[in-house]
Each structure stands twice: as structure tokens, then as C-alpha cells.
Simulated scan of single mutants.
Amino acid sequence: MEAPVTALPPSHLRLADLPNRRATDFALVPTAEERAGIADELGITQIRKLRFAGQLTPAGACDWALDSTLGATVVQPCVTTLDPVTTRIDVEVTRNYVADWVEPDGGESEMPEDDTIEPLPAILDLNAVMIEALALALPDYPRSEGAQLDETVFAEPGVTPMTDEAAKPFAALGALREELEKKGK
């Protein structure tokens, strides 16, 4: 007796079931509720828009290539003021799923030249690829317009405070050079 075939969510593709002579188109547009869940997962304030669309194309006998675009409008807190910062993201997402993937062994390994290569999964979770691509595309340090990081200086009474300018390794040499140049003129 055969095992029953379980239905997969639309964002999951069983690669063995896809046509192996032509590309398969896909498009994911998460609902407001799904976007809110992704925003929570990524630790950002809001995802106003999100679309992930492209093609899965057979590459050789067993491999697959994913070529897609990710478009999103996200809101994150400013790193200096915590004001909301809205960012538009439009990136190309490419993955190459190969059947002969060899997992690096040992504690250290070199990064491959082609960072789009991944092991061939039996079931490809497009939702996971979308979330990973969005996480990689998010600005690391979003800043609202005009936001500046002010300098705060602390020191014990009677001690000259250390400032950012004084902490620069060649600040004293630069001042000495300027002084010598003035004397030389």
C-alpha cells in the first residue's frame, strides 16, 4: 500500500514533481497577517509590501536554478533616534540547487566562490528563501533623515575626559605635523 501524498502549502515545491524540460513560474505575495509574522521574526517594525516572484529552471539532469526578484517596503527603527525609517528594497535573488553538493568537513572551510550554490532539497520552501533574502537585504543601521549621533563625554572629577577626536590614533601626530608646518613657514 502506497503512502498517502500530503498536500503542500503553495510556497513549498516538490522538485521531483516539477516539469524537468521547462521553467516553473512562482509568485508569493504574503497577506498582512503573514507580513506581520515575518516582521516579528526579523525584529523589524513593519513590512508594508512584500513580493517574491521568479522562475525555477531545470539545470542539467538533477539540478535547479532559481532566478527571482524580491520587492519589499519595510519600516525599521532609526539606530539613533528610534524614529520609524521606511526603506524600499528591490533585489535579485539567485540560488543554484545542486544534487552533488558536498558538505564541508572539519572546523574550518573556505567560502566557495559561487555563494549561490546550495544542496538540492526534496521540497523547496520558497517562503524560507524569501525571508532569508529579505533578512540579508535589510539595512543594518537605518537612519532617519537628519539623525546624527551626538558625542557624550564622561570622566571622573579631575580627569580630562577622552573624546572621540582624541581617541583617533594619529590625531596627536596630525596636530604635531601642523605645528611643525606652521613653524617652517
Rank of each mutant, 00 (worst) to 15 (best):
L82E: 13
I89W: 03
L126M: 08
C78V: 07
T86S: 15
V75G: 10
E113Q: 14
C78L: 08
P112Q: 03
P119K: 09
M111C: 07
E108N: 09
T94V: 12
N96F: 10
D115K: 01
P84K: 01
V85F: 05
Q76P: 14
G107Y: 02
C78N: 04
T80W: 10
P119T: 09
V79Y: 04
P77Y: 01
V102R: 11
M111N: 12
V85L: 13
T80M: 11
N96R: 14
P84E: 06
E113P: 08
D115W: 03
L82D: 14
P104R: 06
P112L: 07
R88S: 12
V102M: 02
T116S: 14
P104M: 13
E110N: 08
T87Q: 10
V79M: 07
Y97V: 01
W101N: 12
D125F: 05
I117G: 05
E110F: 11
I123N: 03
D115S: 08
I123A: 05
E118C: 05
D100K: 06
P84T: 01
T94Q: 12
S109P: 03
L126I: 06
T80K: 09
D83M: 06
E108Q: 13
Y97H: 04
L120S: 03
V85M: 05
E103W: 00
C78P: 08
M111I: 14
E92Q: 10
P112N: 02
E92N: 10
T94M: 04
G107H: 06
T86H: 03
R95Q: 09
S109K: 06
A122S: 12
T116R: 10
W101M: 07
V74M: 09
P104A: 11
D90W: 02
C78F: 03
I89L: 13
L124F: 01
E113N: 15
E118M: 11
D90K: 07
I89C: 12
E113D: 15
R88F: 02
V98N: 03
E103D: 11
Q76H: 13
P84Q: 03
L126T: 04
R95M: 08
V102G: 02
P119N: 15
V98Y: 01
I123P: 00
T86C: 10
E118Q: 09
V75A: 12
V75Y: 08
D90V: 12
V79C: 12
T87G: 10
D105S: 15
L126C: 05
W101P: 05
D90N: 13
V79D: 12
E118Y: 01
P119M: 13
V102D: 04
W101I: 09
D114K: 01
V75L: 09
D100L: 08
T86N: 01
L126P: 00
T116Y: 01
V75D: 06
P77Q: 01
E108M: 10
V91C: 07
T87D: 11
L82I: 12
D100V: 07
S109M: 08
D90R: 04
E110L: 12
S109V: 08
T87P: 09
A99W: 04
P84R: 03
T94N: 07
P112K: 02
A99C: 12
L126V: 05
P121Y: 11
P84M: 00
V79I: 14
D125H: 05
L82R: 14
P119E: 14
V93A: 03
P84W: 02
S109F: 15
V98I: 15
I89R: 06
L126D: 03
D114Y: 02
T81W: 02
T86W: 00
N96T: 07
I89E: 03
V98Q: 02
E103T: 11
A99D: 15
